[in-house]
Computed example of a mutant assay.
Amino acid sequence: MASPRQRSAEKLFVVYDGECNFCIATVARLKELPSRADLQFVQIQQLEQQGMLGVPGIQQVSEQQLYEKMHVADSNGVLYAGAEGVVRVLRTVKGLSVLSLLYQLPGMSRIADAIYRIIASRRYEWFGRTEQSCSVNGCEWKPPRQNNNHPEGGR
């Protein structure tokens, strides 16, 4: 049985490129860090195979947009993309949440967005690409079962 703290943890879906070495390494590191949220890591390639099911709100994002930026979705379907998505995840990671405050300083969001765009556009060139998109247990993720009798989508 889950403790009250586990039940109350927010759930965030982190949609990333499972062929990007930098993205895979970042996800592997995030999995090691303590988070106040239930972080679900979902590869874009998994979404393509499963028909975009299971991640709230992701259906409104085109395939091209998914590959341009990492997307983070909360359980209400609110989406955060690029640097804003990184900051959304950082807010939940113990010890790194203070970094998310920098994004709120005047001009910092524009700088962070520009840096994110540069890295994202050159990620394969700088960090390489793998054809094994399940290399960090990403293929273990299964979309939640849809159950219309329960508001939370399950038991």
Rank of each mutant, 00 (worst) to 15 (best):
G95C: 05
C23F: 02
Y116S: 10
R91E: 04
A9D: 10
G85I: 07
V136H: 15
E32A: 11
S133T: 09
Q43V: 01
E19W: 04
V93F: 08
L102H: 07
V61L: 03
V86L: 10
T26R: 05
G51N: 01
Q59E: 06
S133L: 00
A81M: 07
L96A: 04
V42I: 14
V93R: 05
L90V: 06
G154P: 00
E131L: 13
A28P: 01
P4Y: 12
V42R: 03
D17F: 03
L30N: 13
L12W: 02
V98S: 11
E131C: 05
N76G: 12
P34D: 02
E48R: 12
G153T: 05
K11M: 05
Q50V: 12
V93T: 10
R7T: 14
V98L: 13
M52I: 02
F22P: 03
Q64E: 13
A81E: 08
Q146Y: 13
E19C: 12
I118A: 06
R145H: 10
V15K: 06
V87I: 05
N137I: 03
P106V: 07
I111L: 15
G95A: 05
Q45T: 11
P143R: 05
R7A: 15
A2V: 12
V78H: 10
M52H: 09
E152D: 09
V93E: 06
S121F: 01
K11S: 12
G95F: 05
G128K: 07
S135K: 11
A114T: 04
G107M: 05
E125P: 07
C134I: 00
G82R: 02
A37Q: 11
R88D: 04
G153S: 03
F22H: 11
L33W: 06
Q146V: 15
I58Y: 03
Q6V: 15
C23V: 07
A37R: 09
G85D: 09
N148G: 11
F22I: 13
E10S: 15
I119S: 03
Q60E: 12
C23G: 14
I118P: 00
P144A: 15
C20P: 03
L53E: 09
P34A: 09
F13W: 02
Y80S: 13
S8D: 09
M108T: 11
Q50W: 13
E68T: 04
V136Q: 15
A9C: 08
L53N: 11
L101S: 13
L90A: 15
V42D: 09
V27N: 06
Q49E: 14
D38F: 01
V55N: 00
R117T: 12
V136T: 15
P151Y: 03
A81H: 08
K11P: 06
G138M: 08
Q40R: 15
G82S: 04
